[in-house]
Amino acid sequence: MTSLTLVRRIKARPQVIFDAVTTAEGIAHWWGPDAGPVLLSESDPRVGGRYRVRFRMLDSTEHESSGEFLEIMRPERVVLSWRWTGAQEDPGESRIEITLRAVPEGTELTLTHSRLHDEETRSSHEKGWTGSLDKLEAHFAEGASA
């Protein structure tokens, strides 16, 4: 229920797409839903390596996400963890899986963004809340004793 899958056919070989998806230079060319620019792109494409992308949308809002490369099999598969860095977005960590399959006209790309809003996301979300709630509680405790 809480995952999203998109399939695309692209007229390029899997390795060309793979590099566009995993390298900092590649990511800088496409990350973001509209024609707004990518402001920052960092990527260390190996298992355990991290990436960070910041982009501006045409409505001039800026968003940043980051995560870790969990699996890399050039040129057919890459799995990433994903987290919005900005506080205004969904909290918690989700997972992106991209598979690239060679087809006669190029490549069939399948992207699955999963673990959106599931138990794990919720518990890390609650962890995020706990920090700020602890502060509030401490404050109230002070107020009560004063």
Binding site: L4, I17, P33
Partner: peptide, 13 residues
């Protein structure tokens, strides 16, 4: 993702 993949496809092509 659909916006990003449009851009990815254009760039990769």
């Amino acid at each position: 993702w659909s916006g990003s993949l449009d851009r990815l496809a254009a760039y990769a092509e």
